[in-house]
Simulated scan of single mutants.
Amino acid sequence: MSALEALLAAGRAAATRLARETVALYRPGAGDFDWSTGVTTPAPSAALYSGPARVKPLTAEGREVNAGEQPLTLSRFTVSLPWTAPVPSVRPRPGDVVDVLASPDARMVGLRLWVTGAEYSSTATAWRISAEDRS
């Protein structure tokens, strides 16, 4: 094993130890709208990953925006999945969702984050996904 590989292995092991939350990453289904009844029937979601992760806010402040004449606060997060996490059949894309299912910090349980991007690198210690809380 080269020095680089040994260093990456140590970094990836350390990053895995920091993965204290349990998350579900999925792609919501589009749903069907019935014009005669005005009801949307949700389509099934496509599961991309479920398991340990590190969920970390980028800043303690959010950015206030208006969306559909509703005020929202956007807070940015980084979701780090272990390097050994199974590679999903499709890459995460903006609009996918990360739900925090369990955490040592009870305030994070139930947090829903919307994926804004994903980072790819052969020298990363974890697979990082950029996301935002839209509350």
Rank of each mutant, 00 (worst) to 15 (best):
D34R: 08
W35S: 14
W35A: 15
S36V: 12
T37D: 10
T37I: 09
T37A: 06
V39M: 05
T40K: 12
T41W: 02
P42G: 11
P42F: 11
P42K: 06
A43G: 15
P44G: 04
S45Y: 05
S45H: 12
S45P: 03
S45D: 15
A46H: 08
A47Q: 07
L48N: 01
L48G: 00
L48T: 09
L48A: 04
L48P: 01
Y49K: 02
Y49P: 00
S50K: 09
S50G: 14
S50C: 08
S50A: 13
A53K: 01
A53H: 07
R54I: 11
R54T: 10
R54P: 01
V55Q: 00
V55H: 00
V55I: 05
V55A: 00
K56F: 12
P57R: 15
P57H: 10
P57S: 10
P57N: 09
T59A: 13
T59F: 10
A60R: 12
E61M: 11
G62H: 05
G62N: 04
G62E: 02
G62P: 05
R63D: 09
E64K: 14
E64S: 10
E64P: 10
N66A: 08
A67P: 00
A67D: 04
G68P: 07
E69M: 13
Q70I: 13
Q70T: 11
Q70V: 14
P71Y: 09
L72N: 02
L72I: 09
L72T: 08
T73Y: 03
L74Y: 05
L74D: 03
V79L: 01
V79N: 00
V79T: 08
S80P: 04
S80F: 03
L81F: 03
L81I: 08
P82L: 04
P82V: 11
W83E: 02
W83R: 06
W83H: 02
T84D: 13
T84Y: 03
A85G: 10
A85Q: 03
P86K: 01
P86N: 04
P86E: 02
P88M: 08
V90H: 02
V90W: 03
V90F: 01
V90Y: 01
R91A: 13
R91H: 03
R91L: 06
P92W: 02
R93L: 10
R93P: 02
P94H: 02
P94M: 04
G95Y: 15
G95W: 13
D96T: 05
V97W: 01
V97Y: 03
V98K: 05
V98G: 01
D99P: 02
D99G: 11
D99S: 15
V100K: 03
V100S: 03
V100Q: 00
